[in-house]
Design a protein around this nucleic acid. Structure first.
Lengths: 106, 106
DNA sequence: GATGATATATAAGAATGTTATATATGCTTC
DNA sequence: GAAGCATATATAACATTCTTATATATCATC
């Protein structure tokens, strides 16, 4: 892990992007996917992930469905159509911000 | 402004970088410089900037010196040698994180 | 004399993240 | 069969950090 503080503000975008790329995912899967994709650099914590997921659900950007898999409850999250629109918008916003910030930091 | 939330966690790096590039700067100057450099995309708020500056000072990474300029008090901030070391380290940390995150978001 | 740019700073409140904890299954190892 | 680890969801207490509002003050311009 490079820096834990820097994840602030980006968790929401990460979740939206993951769900935009995958029809449905469950929380634990997201933490593993992010860890893999980032080369073990970014590790999501559950204490941050679940509140974020619940918040997105309350905003109507995400829906969830609990299923039994291998005798174990698994809660799948998916984007709503509003969530799909938000996802591309917020990912773009992230890169715009990054670009602007790189002008300051370079 | 693209997104206000995304600035979270990056303010500290911004301040360190500004002071690494300039021998000394005052708060108001920092907000203007960041605004200029980022093409009006990033606007620092004083309520976030001053606490950050004071925190860096408490950590021994920054020192300050108040001077009268045009009959007006102006507080200049500078990096200590520890601050100088932190600056390059934390800027690098930011770009490492950004790189890792772009693997997730692309 | 009102407005706007310059200039620093604090306080209340909101948002968001960390750490610890609880719960539970299934698999592997001792 | 007990212990430990990976899998799996979730909440609570706490800490940090940012936003918004507010206070104060000078100088230049209209």
């Amino acid at each position: 892990m490079t820096s834990k503080e820097l994840i602030k503000g980006t968790l929401r975008v990460i979740v939206l992007k993951l769900l935009a790329e995958n029809r449905r995912m469950y929380g634990y899967e997201m933490t593993q996917r992010v860890k893999d994709l980032s080369g073990d650099e970014i590790e999501l914590t559950f204490g941050a992930l679940y509140p974020t997921l619940h918040k997105l659900e309350a905003e109507g950007l995400v829906t969830s469905k609990t299923m039994m898999v291998d005798n174990r409850a698994r809660k799948y999250y998916s984007l709503t159509s509003a969530g799909d629109a938000s996802a591309s918008k917020e990912v773009k916003g992230y890169f715009d911000f990054t670009k602007a910030l790189s002008l300051v930091l370079k």
